[in-house]
């Protein structure tokens, strides 16, 4: 009986030990190499922090690009070359009230 209690106590102790070191969220041991729990955790946390930083940076970059106003047909004034000072809207240049519209169909090559 005492022997049986001893076995039971040993089994419980082993069970507690296994649950603490094994499947309780600790690192898995690969290829039989010893694993330092603290090192792996800090490396993983470092990687996670790095990924989060990258994701935050990407999100910020995306937000800044999205925040940039894109009005594809916004009117403007040409500020270079021989058309300087002329109003334009994308591919149309000249006074919007001009009575004549010249359309050119062309290929850049």
């Amino acid at each position: 009986m005492r022997f049986a209690r001893g076995l039971l106590a040993s089994g419980l102790a082993l069970g507690v030990l296994l649950s603490a070191c094994g499947s309780g969220g600790g690192p898995e041991q690969q290829d039989g190499e010893p694993v330092s729990t603290g090192t792996v955790r800090s490396e993983r946390e470092g990687r996670e922090a790095s990924i989060m930083q990258q994701q935050e940076s990407a999100a910020e970059a995306g937000q800044s690009e999205q925040a940039e106003p894109v009005d594809v047909d916004a009117p403007g004034v040409i500020d270079f070359g021989h058309r300087e000072g002329l109003p334009f809207t994308r591919n149309v240049v000249g006074d919007p009230e001009a009575p004549v519209l010249i359309v050119e169909y062309s290929d850049f090559q």
């Binding site: 021989h82 001009a98 519209l101």
Partner: peptide, 24 residues
């Protein structure tokens, strides 16, 4: 032709008409 545009007589619109393939 630029003078016609700068004086407000005409406005000019460019439209793509692709005839030379991928580069165009």
């Amino acid at each position: 032709m630029e003078e016609l545009i700068s004086t407000g007589i005409a406005r000019y619109e460019y439209r793509h008409f692709i005839i030379f393939g991928a580069a165009s």
